[in-house]
Write a protein that binds this DNA or RNA. Sequence first.
DNA 1: CTTTCAGCCTGGGCGC
DNA 2: TGCGCCCAGGCTGAAA
Length: 287
Amino acid sequence: MPELPEVETVARHLAPKIVGKTCGSLIVSDIKLGNPPQNFKNYLINDVSRLGKEVLFQFSKNSKELYLLVHLRMSGRLLFNQGNSFEELEASDSYLEHKIIRIKSDNFSKHIRATFKFKDSELYFFDVRRFGTFKWHTKRPTLPEGTVDPVNKNFDFETFTELANKSKNLSVKNFLLRQDRISGIGNIYASEIAFSSRIRPTRIVGTLSKPELKKLFKSIPSILNKAILNNGTTFSDFQLDDSSTGNYQNFLKVYGKTNENCKICKTPISKIVQNQRSTFFCPQCQR
DNA sequence: CTTTCAGCCTGGGCGC
DNA sequence: TGCGCCCAGGCTGAAA
């Protein structure tokens, strides 16, 4: 599902609901997620934040810390259920998740891969495609050395230039998708960022002029922060846990707009495939 | 080292 | 209705 702005949105909306709660237990029903540490009981949730494209939970018990990184991959979601039994939720008209997930008359519960149990509420890890992952740490995980978060204030042009130099031979699109260099950009925002900087996604990084590099650099936090302000992009399988939706889909300029007219020059938007993934761009505006 | 590409999963949507 | 095919906000690892 999600790229940096969607994961940031999930963490921001989830934190006020569960920070300070004690997680009585965790039931993992999908073996692919692995087991929680032994005796994972009665841990206090101290924080919910984002690390790259992952949601980072910080727990503690008796001054011992424990961390969980949840990668949502393509279809993972964290759904907070305040108070109601699942059966009540399913039967309820106000239970909008159903309509939004658009899993036909399927039963919803079979896609719940893990459940965090609180005193009077629950948090579900819901993941249709089962690509999501759990990783447990006893020390706070960080991005690897040399990897930057593009909305962090320490992401400056100098850093970006160094990363671009390491990626001289990559296309702009593939450079933007390198998680071990800039962490957080995915398939939607890679196209949007390239459009915003007027650079064709197939351009080789080493051929970019300094002004082009600068434009590309500026577009990255600009696009990502605007998406965060709008709670990310909502498609059929991304939904905030509280049934409100992200709005950035209304601001997309090229992603998914094949043959629609470019917002700037009216030229039909092109779709190509790079590294087995769709790329969208305006053949007129982007050179 | 690079690039390519099947694979991991499930379900929606479309054409026939 | 149903079947076969293509598509999907990600990423890994084997093969070339």
